[in-house]
Computed example of a mutant assay.
Amino acid sequence: MAFFQEFVLADQSQHDIKAFDCGKPDMDRFLARFAVKNMRLGLSRTWVLPVVSERQQAQKAQIAAYYSLAASTVVREEIPTNIKLPGYPVPVVLLARLAVEEQFKGQRLGEKTLITALRKSVELTDAGLPALNVILDVLDEDALGFYQRYEMFEPFTDDPMRLFVPMHTLRHIR
């Protein structure tokens, strides 16, 4: 089975968002019920990796993976840095969601999705959306293990399930 060459914005008229199953009901529900709605409201953007199929002409494309990004702010005191920052909230990119369809796990799509999401974060920042870091709230221990494999994420607060990576680190990802 082949995938599109790039992630595209979720579109319920072209993508079968309701059939996505990553094994985590909250992640499936978000894509099916809230991803497109949140895009319309300007709250976040969700990109999907469609599956290429010969039979696809008359039906919606299956989704192999997705990620969602949103703008957010954090208070300066929470940021583990030596950089002198203003006393008001600091802008960050929130990696709100990242999931791979159950049938495609084990094919390194999680890694591809993560790298794509982090590159998109840098692209958005370079295009004018100011952000100091990318932060994420980890769903569970499985997800924490996934992110820890990359050795670039650091705990953001005393909560080990909240991670961050500085934007200047992400600029070096190829």
Rank of each mutant, 00 (worst) to 15 (best):
G110A: 00
V75A: 09
Q5N: 05
M167G: 13
T73H: 06
A143E: 00
S13R: 13
Q59W: 12
Q56G: 11
K112I: 12
P166M: 14
K37W: 09
N82Q: 11
A131Y: 04
V36H: 03
K120A: 15
V36K: 06
Q56C: 02
P25W: 07
L43K: 12
S68W: 13
V52K: 14
L109Q: 05
T116I: 14
Q56D: 01
A32C: 11
F146R: 03
L43N: 06
S121A: 08
G110W: 03
K18C: 08
E154Q: 15
L144W: 07
V51R: 08
Y88Q: 06
A71D: 10
S13C: 07
L85T: 11
D26L: 14
D142A: 07
T81W: 13
F146P: 01
L43T: 02
V92Y: 10
N82D: 08
T169S: 05
E102D: 10
A19F: 01
P86K: 05
T113V: 12
D16P: 00
I79Y: 12
F146I: 02
D126A: 14
D159S: 02
F30W: 06
I115N: 04
T125M: 10
I173S: 02
I135Y: 04
G128S: 15
D158I: 05
K18W: 07
D159C: 01
E123S: 09
A10K: 04
M167I: 09
F3D: 03
C22P: 00
Q59K: 10
V90W: 01
A58H: 10
R174E: 13
Q57C: 14
W47M: 00
P25A: 12
T169H: 05
Q148K: 09
V134L: 07
K84S: 10
